[in-house]
Protein backbone atom coordinates (compact mmCIF):
# COMPACT_ATOMS: atom_id res chain seq x y z
CA UNK A 1 0.00 0.00 0.00
CA UNK A 2 1.28 3.40 -0.86
CA UNK A 3 0.11 6.68 0.54
CA UNK A 4 0.86 10.21 -0.59
CA UNK A 5 3.31 10.59 2.28
CA UNK A 6 5.45 7.59 1.48
CA UNK A 7 5.03 7.51 -2.26
CA UNK A 8 8.25 8.46 -3.98
CA UNK A 9 9.82 9.41 -0.68
CA UNK A 10 13.15 8.04 0.46
CA UNK A 11 14.16 10.73 2.92
CA UNK A 12 13.12 8.91 6.08
CA UNK A 13 15.28 5.92 5.47
CA UNK A 14 12.16 3.84 5.03
CA UNK A 15 11.96 1.12 2.45
CA UNK A 16 11.49 2.52 -1.03
CA UNK A 17 7.95 1.70 -2.01
CA UNK A 18 7.05 -0.07 -5.23
CA UNK A 19 4.84 2.22 -7.28
CA UNK A 20 2.00 0.88 -9.35
CA UNK A 21 1.67 1.54 -13.04
CA UNK A 22 -2.02 2.21 -13.54
CA UNK A 23 -3.39 0.81 -16.78
CA UNK A 24 -6.61 0.59 -18.71
CA UNK A 25 -8.78 -2.51 -18.55
CA UNK A 26 -10.05 -3.71 -21.93
CA UNK A 27 -11.26 -7.19 -22.82
CA UNK A 28 -9.86 -8.64 -19.58
CA UNK A 29 -6.37 -7.30 -20.30
CA UNK A 30 -4.46 -4.35 -18.88
CA UNK A 31 -3.11 -2.33 -21.79
CA UNK A 32 -1.58 1.10 -21.73
CA UNK A 33 -3.39 3.62 -23.89
CA UNK A 34 -2.61 2.92 -27.53
CA UNK A 35 -1.85 6.64 -27.73
CA UNK A 36 1.00 6.30 -25.26
CA UNK A 37 -0.42 9.23 -23.30
CA UNK A 38 -0.64 9.59 -19.53
CA UNK A 39 -1.78 12.40 -17.26
CA UNK A 40 -0.97 13.34 -13.71
CA UNK A 41 -3.41 12.42 -11.00
CA UNK A 42 -3.20 14.33 -7.75
CA UNK A 43 -4.88 14.07 -4.40
CA UNK A 44 -7.31 16.68 -3.09
CA UNK A 45 -4.31 18.81 -1.93
CA UNK A 46 -2.75 18.74 -5.38
CA UNK A 47 0.02 16.32 -4.46
CA UNK A 48 1.04 13.88 -7.19
CA UNK A 49 -0.38 10.37 -6.77
CA UNK A 50 0.28 8.61 -10.03
CA UNK A 51 0.26 8.88 -13.78
CA UNK A 52 -2.94 7.48 -15.27
CA UNK A 53 -3.46 6.49 -18.87
CA UNK A 54 -5.01 9.24 -20.97
CA UNK A 55 -7.13 6.92 -23.09
CA UNK A 56 -7.88 7.79 -26.69
CA UNK A 57 -10.87 7.44 -29.02
CA UNK A 58 -9.22 4.31 -30.37
CA UNK A 59 -9.09 2.85 -26.86
CA UNK A 60 -12.79 3.66 -26.52
CA UNK A 61 -13.60 1.86 -29.76
CA UNK A 62 -11.50 -1.13 -28.72
CA UNK A 63 -13.40 -1.24 -25.45
CA UNK A 64 -16.73 -1.27 -27.31
CA UNK A 65 -15.55 -4.18 -29.45
CA UNK A 66 -14.55 -6.08 -26.30
CA UNK A 67 -17.85 -5.30 -24.61
CA UNK A 68 -19.86 -6.41 -27.63
CA UNK A 69 -17.88 -9.63 -27.84
CA UNK A 70 -18.59 -10.38 -24.19
CA UNK A 71 -22.30 -9.59 -24.39
CA UNK A 72 -23.64 -12.88 -25.71
CA UNK A 73 -21.91 -14.95 -23.04
CA UNK A 74 -22.64 -12.64 -20.13
CA UNK A 75 -26.28 -11.95 -21.03
CA UNK A 76 -26.74 -15.66 -21.70
CA UNK A 77 -25.29 -16.72 -18.34
CA UNK A 78 -27.81 -17.78 -15.74
CA UNK A 79 -28.89 -15.12 -13.30
CA UNK A 80 -27.57 -17.32 -10.48
CA UNK A 81 -24.19 -17.42 -12.15
CA UNK A 82 -24.07 -13.64 -12.61
CA UNK A 83 -25.07 -13.18 -8.99
CA UNK A 84 -22.24 -15.41 -7.81
CA UNK A 85 -19.71 -13.64 -9.99
CA UNK A 86 -20.80 -10.27 -8.61
CA UNK A 87 -20.67 -11.60 -5.08
CA UNK A 88 -17.14 -12.80 -5.79
CA UNK A 89 -16.26 -9.23 -6.76
CA UNK A 90 -17.48 -8.10 -3.35
CA UNK A 91 -15.30 -10.77 -1.71
CA UNK A 92 -12.26 -9.50 -3.57
CA UNK A 93 -13.11 -5.91 -2.66
CA UNK A 94 -13.35 -6.89 0.96
CA UNK A 95 -9.87 -8.41 0.75
CA UNK A 96 -8.48 -5.11 -0.52
CA UNK A 97 -10.52 -2.98 1.84
CA UNK A 98 -7.53 -1.13 3.28
CA UNK A 99 -6.10 -0.40 -0.13
CA UNK A 100 -9.38 1.05 -1.36
CA UNK A 101 -9.89 3.07 1.81
CA UNK A 102 -6.51 4.67 1.28
CA UNK A 103 -7.18 5.34 -2.40
CA UNK A 104 -10.60 6.80 -1.60
CA UNK A 105 -9.10 9.00 1.12
CA UNK A 106 -6.62 10.39 -1.38
CA UNK A 107 -9.03 10.60 -4.31
CA UNK A 108 -12.03 12.07 -2.53
CA UNK A 109 -10.10 14.06 0.06
CA UNK A 110 -11.71 12.27 2.98
CA UNK A 111 -10.37 11.62 6.47
CA UNK A 112 -9.34 8.01 6.98
CA UNK A 113 -12.37 7.03 9.05
CA UNK A 114 -14.81 8.52 6.56
CA UNK A 115 -12.95 6.87 3.68
CA UNK A 116 -13.28 3.49 5.40
CA UNK A 117 -16.98 4.11 5.88
CA UNK A 118 -17.43 4.97 2.20
CA UNK A 119 -15.43 1.93 1.16
CA UNK A 120 -17.56 -0.32 3.32
CA UNK A 121 -20.68 1.21 1.83
CA UNK A 122 -19.32 0.53 -1.65
CA UNK A 123 -18.64 -3.11 -0.84
CA UNK A 124 -22.09 -3.48 0.73
CA UNK A 125 -23.68 -1.85 -2.31
CA UNK A 126 -21.93 -4.38 -4.53
CA UNK A 127 -23.32 -7.22 -2.40
CA UNK A 128 -26.77 -5.63 -2.58
CA UNK A 129 -26.67 -5.54 -6.36
CA UNK A 130 -25.29 -9.08 -6.61
CA UNK A 131 -28.49 -10.31 -5.02
CA UNK A 132 -30.62 -8.59 -7.64
CA UNK A 133 -29.46 -10.79 -10.51
CA UNK A 134 -32.14 -13.44 -10.04
CA UNK A 135 -34.88 -11.21 -8.65
CA UNK A 136 -35.25 -8.31 -11.03
CA UNK A 137 -37.05 -10.42 -13.66
CA UNK A 138 -39.72 -11.35 -11.16
CA UNK A 139 -40.11 -7.80 -9.95
CA UNK A 140 -40.36 -6.07 -13.35
CA UNK A 141 -41.58 -8.93 -15.54
CA UNK A 142 -44.60 -11.15 -15.39
CA UNK A 143 -47.62 -12.70 -17.03
CA UNK A 144 -50.13 -10.46 -18.78
CA UNK A 145 -53.82 -11.44 -18.64
CA UNK A 146 -54.71 -10.80 -22.28
CA UNK A 147 -58.33 -11.06 -23.43
CA UNK A 148 -57.92 -14.15 -25.56
CA UNK A 149 -56.58 -17.69 -25.62
CA UNK A 150 -52.92 -16.76 -25.36
CA UNK A 151 -50.04 -17.32 -23.02
CA UNK A 152 -48.37 -13.90 -22.68
CA UNK A 153 -45.21 -13.20 -20.73
CA UNK A 154 -43.06 -10.10 -20.35
CA UNK A 155 -39.42 -10.53 -19.40
CA UNK A 156 -36.66 -7.97 -18.88
CA UNK A 157 -33.54 -8.40 -20.99
CA UNK A 158 -30.28 -6.46 -20.97
CA UNK A 159 -30.14 -3.75 -23.60
CA UNK A 160 -26.55 -4.52 -24.68
CA UNK A 161 -23.37 -2.46 -24.44
CA UNK A 162 -23.71 0.42 -22.00
CA UNK A 163 -21.28 3.34 -21.92
CA UNK A 164 -21.04 4.61 -18.36
CA UNK A 165 -19.57 7.95 -17.34
CA UNK A 166 -18.66 7.42 -13.72
CA UNK A 167 -19.50 10.22 -11.28
CA UNK A 168 -16.85 12.94 -11.17
CA UNK A 169 -16.82 12.78 -7.38
CA UNK A 170 -17.35 9.72 -5.16
CA UNK A 171 -14.61 7.74 -6.82
CA UNK A 172 -15.58 4.38 -5.35
CA UNK A 173 -19.12 4.43 -3.92
CA UNK A 174 -20.40 6.46 -6.88
CA UNK A 175 -18.46 4.24 -9.24
CA UNK A 176 -19.85 1.02 -7.81
CA UNK A 177 -23.33 2.53 -7.73
CA UNK A 178 -23.33 3.08 -11.48
CA UNK A 179 -21.38 0.02 -12.60
CA UNK A 180 -22.95 -2.83 -10.63
CA UNK A 181 -26.56 -2.15 -11.75
CA UNK A 182 -25.51 -2.13 -15.40
CA UNK A 183 -23.78 -5.50 -15.38
CA UNK A 184 -25.88 -7.41 -12.86
CA UNK A 185 -28.74 -7.63 -15.35
CA UNK A 186 -26.49 -8.93 -18.15
CA UNK A 187 -25.31 -5.80 -19.93
CA UNK A 188 -21.65 -5.23 -20.66
CA UNK A 189 -20.04 -1.90 -19.87
CA UNK A 190 -17.49 0.58 -21.10
CA UNK A 191 -16.80 2.75 -18.10
CA UNK A 192 -15.10 6.14 -18.26
CA UNK A 193 -13.63 6.94 -14.86
CA UNK A 194 -13.78 10.25 -13.08
CA UNK A 195 -11.12 12.39 -14.74
CA UNK A 196 -9.71 13.74 -11.50
CA UNK A 197 -10.11 10.61 -9.37
CA UNK A 198 -9.54 7.59 -11.60
CA UNK A 199 -7.34 5.47 -9.34
CA UNK A 200 -10.01 3.57 -7.36
CA UNK A 201 -11.65 2.67 -10.67
CA UNK A 202 -8.39 1.46 -12.17
CA UNK A 203 -7.76 -0.59 -9.05
CA UNK A 204 -11.29 -1.98 -9.26
CA UNK A 205 -10.25 -3.42 -12.62
CA UNK A 206 -7.71 -5.58 -10.77
CA UNK A 207 -10.51 -6.82 -8.55
CA UNK A 208 -12.75 -7.60 -11.52
CA UNK A 209 -9.93 -9.43 -13.27
CA UNK A 210 -9.61 -11.80 -10.32
CA UNK A 211 -13.34 -12.36 -9.74
CA UNK A 212 -14.45 -14.81 -12.45
CA UNK A 213 -15.94 -11.91 -14.39
CA UNK A 214 -15.44 -12.79 -18.07
CA UNK A 215 -13.08 -10.44 -19.89
CA UNK A 216 -14.87 -7.65 -21.71
CA UNK A 217 -17.92 -7.52 -19.44
CA UNK A 218 -16.44 -4.42 -17.84
CA UNK A 219 -13.93 -2.22 -19.63
CA UNK A 220 -12.42 0.76 -17.85
CA UNK A 221 -10.95 3.86 -19.43
CA UNK A 222 -9.33 6.80 -17.67
CA UNK A 223 -8.78 10.10 -19.39
CA UNK A 224 -10.58 13.20 -20.51
CA UNK A 225 -14.31 12.63 -20.03
CA UNK A 226 -15.48 14.60 -23.04
CA UNK A 227 -12.81 13.18 -25.34
CA UNK A 228 -13.90 9.62 -24.52
CA UNK A 229 -17.61 10.24 -24.10
CA UNK A 230 -18.11 11.83 -27.51
CA UNK A 231 -17.10 8.80 -29.58
CA UNK A 232 -18.98 6.50 -27.20
CA UNK A 233 -22.17 8.57 -27.46
CA UNK A 234 -21.92 8.53 -31.25
CA UNK A 235 -20.88 4.86 -31.51
CA UNK A 236 -23.38 2.78 -33.49
CA UNK A 237 -22.62 -0.38 -31.52
CA UNK A 238 -23.30 1.14 -28.11
CA UNK A 239 -26.88 0.63 -26.93
CA UNK A 240 -27.12 2.91 -23.93
CA UNK A 241 -25.44 5.78 -22.17
CA UNK A 242 -25.28 6.59 -18.46
CA UNK A 243 -24.44 10.29 -18.12
CA UNK A 244 -23.84 10.27 -14.35
CA UNK A 245 -20.40 11.88 -14.77
CA UNK A 246 -21.29 14.52 -17.36
CA UNK A 247 -21.99 18.15 -16.51
CA UNK A 248 -25.09 19.83 -17.95
CA UNK A 249 -23.67 21.13 -21.20
CA UNK A 250 -21.74 17.99 -22.07
CA UNK A 251 -24.71 15.83 -21.05
CA UNK A 252 -26.99 17.68 -23.48
CA UNK A 253 -24.47 17.34 -26.31
CA UNK A 254 -23.99 13.62 -25.64
CA UNK A 255 -27.73 12.97 -25.41
CA UNK A 256 -28.21 14.61 -28.80
CA UNK A 257 -25.41 12.50 -30.28
CA UNK A 258 -26.93 9.38 -28.75
CA UNK A 259 -30.13 9.99 -30.73
CA UNK A 260 -28.37 8.87 -33.89
CA UNK A 261 -29.03 5.20 -33.04
CA UNK A 262 -31.56 5.88 -30.28
CA UNK A 263 -29.40 4.86 -27.37
CA UNK A 264 -31.17 4.59 -24.08
CA UNK A 265 -29.93 7.58 -22.09
CA UNK A 266 -29.90 7.94 -18.33
CA UNK A 267 -29.56 11.63 -17.58
CA UNK A 268 -27.51 12.92 -14.63
CA UNK A 269 -29.90 13.36 -11.72
CA UNK A 270 -29.91 16.71 -9.91
CA UNK A 271 -28.12 16.51 -6.59
CA UNK A 272 -26.75 13.08 -7.45
CA UNK A 273 -23.53 13.48 -5.48
CA UNK A 274 -25.09 11.72 -2.54
CA UNK A 275 -24.68 8.03 -3.26
CA UNK A 276 -25.64 6.84 0.20
CA UNK A 277 -29.39 6.58 -0.39
CA UNK A 278 -31.19 3.34 -1.27
CA UNK A 279 -30.89 3.25 -5.07
CA UNK A 280 -34.05 1.23 -5.71
CA UNK A 281 -34.49 -0.05 -9.25
CA UNK A 282 -33.80 3.31 -10.83
CA UNK A 283 -30.35 2.44 -12.19
CA UNK A 284 -31.25 -1.06 -13.40
CA UNK A 285 -34.49 -0.56 -15.34
CA UNK A 286 -33.14 2.11 -17.74
CA UNK A 287 -30.84 -0.53 -19.20
CA UNK A 288 -33.43 -3.26 -19.52
CA UNK A 289 -35.67 -4.01 -22.48
CA UNK A 290 -39.04 -5.62 -21.98
CA UNK A 291 -39.65 -8.55 -24.29
CA UNK A 292 -43.19 -9.86 -24.54
CA UNK A 293 -43.81 -13.34 -25.94
CA UNK A 294 -47.20 -14.57 -27.10
CA UNK A 295 -48.28 -18.14 -27.76
CA UNK A 296 -51.76 -19.51 -28.46
CA UNK A 297 -53.41 -21.67 -25.84
CA UNK A 298 -55.39 -24.64 -27.13
CA UNK A 299 -55.31 -28.33 -27.69
Amino acid sequence: MSTPETRGSEARGARLSVLKTYKLYIGGKFPRSESGRVYEVTDAQGQWLANAPLASRKDARDAVVAARKAFAGWSGATAYNRGQVLYRVAEMLEGRREQFAAEVAAADGLPAAKAREVTDAAIDRWVWYAGWSDKVAQVVGGANPVAGPFFNLSTPEPTGVVAVLAPRRSSLLGLVSVLAPVIVTGNTAVLVTSHTAPLPALSLAEVLATSDLPGGVVNILSGDTAELARPLAAHRDVNALDLAGADGELAAELEAAAAENLKRVLRPAPGADDWSADPGLARMTPFLETKTVWHPVGA
Binding site: F150, N261, E289, T292, W294
Partner: peptide, 25 residues
Amino acid sequence: GVVWANTFNKFDPTSPFGGYKESGY
Protein backbone atom coordinates in the same frame (compact mmCIF):
# COMPACT_ATOMS: atom_id res chain seq x y z
CA GLY B 1 -39.80 -6.27 -28.08
CA VAL B 2 -42.72 -8.44 -29.13
CA VAL B 3 -42.34 -12.06 -30.18
CA TRP B 4 -45.34 -13.91 -31.55
CA ALA B 5 -44.97 -17.68 -31.55
CA ASN B 6 -47.41 -19.58 -33.76
CA THR B 7 -49.45 -16.40 -34.05
CA PHE B 8 -48.86 -12.85 -35.24
CA ASN B 9 -50.13 -9.30 -34.86
CA LYS B 10 -51.96 -9.83 -31.60
CA PHE B 11 -52.49 -6.84 -29.31
CA ASP B 12 -53.95 -6.32 -25.89
CA PRO B 13 -54.03 -3.41 -23.44
CA THR B 14 -52.43 -5.56 -20.74
CA SER B 15 -49.52 -6.56 -22.97
CA PRO B 16 -46.51 -4.20 -23.15
CA PHE B 17 -45.63 -3.18 -26.69
CA GLY B 18 -42.47 -1.48 -27.90
CA GLY B 19 -39.10 -1.97 -29.48
CA TYR B 20 -35.43 -2.70 -29.03
CA LYS B 21 -32.70 -0.73 -30.79
CA GLU B 22 -33.88 1.81 -33.37
CA SER B 23 -37.51 0.77 -33.02
CA GLY B 24 -37.60 3.15 -30.07
CA TYR B 25 -37.81 3.01 -26.29
